[in-house]
């Protein structure tokens, strides 16, 4: 399977990427290419222009910035999972990223690419939601910042305009007192999540002071399980209380039925996996 022909330009800055995007009505950004190249090969996309941002230095690397870490959109999954900064301040991201596809794909695929691609079965948008991440986006009018909660709009659709590029993702640290866990259900190694749950829990004196739970593949976009979060807030950090709160996990979701699972099965998975993820995040199992 060979992609249809396209023009190719390699850029050295986010501003140059934006300028290149404006030269074509039908351009695509190439980072690690682990989603785009299979799509090109299958000819599900036949763009006129590919703008390669893989060499843009300002979009690569991980740094500490006060109470947050900032990850360049072009940073590979491998570099994310092996980063001491990520493991210390965003262990949920390190854990979830280590489950993305397989080692070869993690050597090429990028954090920003996975966020911008916004596949509802992807592992990383849910982590961005739990961290209350902020996306830094470059466009013709300069840069703008968008909260993760406002970034994901629909199936494979984000707030990114055709002539914008995701530059970096800012993750506020989840520090002392927080526990996190990513619980993923797949049929075989390296496959996409049928359902997955990202959870972060802050415990205080034996009860749950704050909980954040995000669901993967339970709707056209990732979403926070708001009913579970409010049921957990102030609840005892016990297996019984967590199980009870998890019963609300499928509220407000709209899972699909496909070859992997029916919608009602996905709803049950959401409840079960939420219970496991929260319990592990709370240090109970």
């Amino acid at each position: 399977m060979i992609p249809a022909g396209f023009d190719y330009v390699r850029v050295n800055s986010a501003a140059d990427a934006v300028a290149a995007l404006q030269t074509s009505e039908d351009a695509k950004i190439l980072g690690g290419g682990q989603s785009l190249i299979p799509i090109l090969r299958l000819r599900l996309a036949t763009p006129e222009l590919i703008v390669d941002v893989s060499g843009v230095a300002e979009m690569n690397g991980i740094r500490e910035d006060g109470d947050a870490i900032v990850i360049g959109a072009g940073t590979t999954h491998h570099d994310v999972t092996t980063s001491d900064l990520v493991r210390t301040h965003a262990p949920l991201l390190a854990q979830a990223t280590a489950t993305v596809a397989d080692p070869q794909v993690r050597h090429r695929g990028t954090f920003g690419g996975a966020i911008a691609h916004a596949d509802p079965a992807g592992d990383l948008p849910g982590v961005a939601l739990v961290h209350n991440a902020t996306m830094t986006i470059a466009g013709p009018a300069g840069t703008r910042e968008v909260a993760a909660a406002d970034f994901f709009l629909d199936y494979l659709t984000t707030t990114l305009a055709e002539d914008e590029v995701l530059v970096s993702i800012r993750l506020p640290k989840l520090g002392a007192g927080w526990g996190t866990h990513y619980e993923k259900f797949t049929r075989v190694a390296q496959s996409w999540s049928i359902v997955a749950v990202a959870a972060a829990v802050r415990r205080e004196n034996g009860s749950i002071a704050e909980a954040r739970v995000a669901l993967t593949n339970m709707a056209p976009t990732h979403l926070r399980a708001a009913a579970v979060e409010s049921a957990l807030t102030g609840a005892a950090a016990s297996a019984e209380a967590i199980k009870a709160a998890s019963q609300a996990a499928a509220e407000g979701t709209s899972p699909t039925s496909d070859l992997n699972a029916q919608a009602d099965y996905r709803a049950e998975l959401a409840r079960v996996l939420t219970g496991r993820a929260v319990a592990k995040a709370a240090g109970l199992s």
Binding site: Y8, R10, L30, G33, Q34, I37, P38, R41, D52, S54, H78, P103, Q104, V105, H107, R108
Partner: peptide
Amino acid sequence: GQSIKSCSMLAVQ
């Protein structure tokens, strides 16, 4: 120095 799938990378990259 890193393993990759050569069907998922362009030669120009």
